[in-house]
Amino acid sequence: MNIETVKLSGSLDIGKIEEILQVGMEIITCKKELIVDLSEVTFVRPISLVVFAATIYNARTLGNKLKVVLPNKMDTRSYINSIGFQSFLEGNQKEPSYYKSYVPLYHLDANRPQFVDLLIDFIQREGVDNKTSYIIRLGINELIQNVFDHSKSQVGCFVCSQSYRQKKYIRTAMVDLGIGIPTNARTISRFKNSTDDRILLAATNGEITTRHNIPGAKGLKMLCEIITENQGNICIFSHKGRFTGEGSKKNAKLKEVFFQGTGIEFKLPYLFDDEKSVGFGFKEIIEGEI
């Protein structure tokens, strides 16, 4: 029998994203039996788990056979288990728990959008203020809307979030296996010949919307702005493009590995003061003359 093995070791953080995506693509494209060996992995960040979850789900729907060897290190294994990756491998969805500091791995699709509310309720219960959780909700809504509208993803999208209580920040990762931001952008004539990195830069500037003059690219732009203005950071990857934003620095470059869908990871401190809502009339928010 022809069995292939892909192995990852050490710390699976954003610095190793290329290796993680490489393994993800091998999981999707492998026609034989595949063993994903994580036995020597010592640390995982949510982004690596969502990439694996999405690609494994996709491979399974295609009928590919694969086996995942979990890390030997107890701490890492226990984290993977608690965040719901092991349940996912067994075909179950782990429910959020009131006391935990993470949002377990969630599979969101067109038939289960109500999980966004569950996810955000959990984040708010965690003690994250309204404004922070609002931005997370906005980002997730935007990404999922894009999955429904454009990405043509049969898989939906995977989300996972970890709250670091002592350091007071939250890290959220989302991945979809759709057609990717560059494919969408290239349907607009001025982006036809643009490289993947330039397209990601334009997307985060709110310049890309495939619906003529229809609001739709605002969410990603707002998400990037608010995160970077508030000591957070964001990383977006789609096809060969990789965008990172931190403070006033925005950087987009081409990576070696092609990734079919789109992934987002952001870190956001709980820094904000909550504002009170007040009633208002439409006239107050119209700009200029009608």
Partner: peptide, 24 residues
């Protein structure tokens, strides 16, 4: 006529969205 108990960030979003449509 009125938008009651709308959170301030939604008000900002609504402002962006309607002004884009008005431009259209």
């Amino acid at each position: 006529y009125r938008f009651e108990r709308m959170v301030p960030m939604d008000k900002e979003l609504l402002k962006e969205v309607i002004n884009t449509r008005l431009l259209e």
